[in-house]
């Protein structure tokens, strides 16, 4: 009765709804954006007060720049702090934001793998810089297959180079503010050096054999190099790979041999594989605990300490240090 009368129109309504939702899905992509950082001011599209409109991809670029630029820049980050850059796809509103920017910074080195076309296109109309690619090639890490590890922000010195290159571009855009930028940059870099010193000191106090960082995927290569920390990732560089039993086995062997007290999970990755390692190690008599959650591709929530570059970095260092140096 009622069911029959609406059946045909239900089918049509469904089809229409499906079409609309598919369009929306294609349009909005896999994520959204987030506004600002500490130094942004005003609604988007202003810049009438002379502030440079900067658009970046990841928060690791946005947040430091908003500190260095102060209220002379208005920084927008396409990806929020909790978003995975490897898989991110640009949406229509992202393209618009890129179009209305004065300058665009992205990390490069294939981190924002799905956005390369967008950058190529926008590069024809606006200044675009891949800050990661400003770093000297010989200081970059590659994996077994020859792919470049894009997580360069985990090496303080390398990231200073990257941020420095970005600041130079900002100076070119607004020569009047060049001095201000330079001064702020020096201050910020000083803080970064301080952080590095602290981190190196802490890690050095952990006995060498136990200085092993085991995580689900290989995001911490630079981190490990800078702090003389051996880094072992269960998966490869990308979050797309799948692990095998031999990977788990190999990791457990290492933990047992070197008596490493803790392993770590990342905020963006399902912790199951790490938990499997812990349980497997337990069977072999080695008590390995979960040392804590680290930030790999993402940073903390906006407005929190871990939502800042320095805060995020420090969180990682402290978490690892406490876990590895604790009961051994």
């Amino acid at each position: 009765m009622f069911k029959q009368r609406i059946s045909k129109s239900t089918g049509q309504a469904f089809a229409l709804l499906a079409a609309m939702l598919m369009l929306v899905a294609c349009g909005s992509g896999a994520g959204g954006g987030a506004e600002g950082g500490a130094g942004s001011a005003g609604a988007d599209g202003s810049g009438a007060d002379g502030a440079i409109r900067v658009v970046t991809t990841i928060a690791q670029i946005a947040e430091p720049l908003s500190v260095i630029g102060g209220d002379r820049v208005q920084v927008t980050s396409l990806m929020g702090p909790g978003v995975d850059p490897h898989l991110y796809q640009a949406s229509q509103s992202d393209i618009r934001k890129l179009g209305s920017a004065d300058i665009i910074f992205y990390s490069g080195l294939h981190l924002e793998a799905n956005m390369l076309r967008a950058f190529e296109e926008i590069g024809k109309r606006r200044p675009v810089l891949a800050v990661g690619e400003a770093i000297a090639k010989d200081r970059l890490l590659t994996d077994a297959t020859g792919a470049v590890d894009p997580h360069v922000w985990f090496d303080i010195d390398l990231w200073k180079e990257a941020l420095g290159a970005a600041v130079e571009e900002l100076k070119k855009l607004s020569p009047d503010d060049a001095e201000l930028f330079e001064a702020n940059k020096r201050d910020y870099f000083a803080k970064m050096d301080e952080l590095k010193e602290e981190a190196v000191r802490k890690m050095a106090s952990v006995p060498k054999e136990r200085r092993v960082l085991v995580t689900a995927h290989d995001a911490f290569g630079y981190f490990g190099r800078m702090l003389d920390l051996e880094v072992v990732g269960l998966q490869g560089l990308s979050t797309e790979d799948e692990i095998g039993l031999s990977d788990i086995e190999r990791t457990i062997d290492l933990l047992v041999e070197r008596r490493v007290p803790a392993v770590f999970v990342e905020s963006s990755i399902n912790p199951k594989s790490i938990e499997a390692v812990i349980e497997g190690a337990k069977e072999r008599g080695a008590t390995v605990r979960l040392g804590g959650e680290l930030f790999s591709d993402a940073m903390g929530g906006a407005g929190t300490v871990e939502g800042t570059y320095l805060g995020m970095f420090r969180h990682n260092v402290d978490t690892i240090f406490e876990a590895l140096s604790g009961e051994g």
């Binding site: 896999a30 994520g31 959204g32 954006g33 987030a34 929020g80 702090p81 909790g82 978003v83 995975d84 979050t239 799948e242 692990i243 095998g244 039993l245 990977d247 788990i248 905020s267 963006s268 990755i269 399902n270 199951k272 594989s273 938990e275 499997a276 349980e279 497997g280 591709d297 993402a298 940073m299 903390g300 929530g301 906006a302 407005g303 929190t304 871990e306 939502g307």
Partner: peptide, 23 residues
């Protein structure tokens, strides 16, 4: 993803496991 808090990364794939990680 536009919500202010963090932790949204990897949400769409988070519940998918892998065979090797079974305990």
């Amino acid at each position: 993803n536009r919500m202010p808090g963090g932790g949204q990364s990897g949400l769409n794939g988070f519940i998918f496991g892998q065979a090797a990680a079974m305990v």
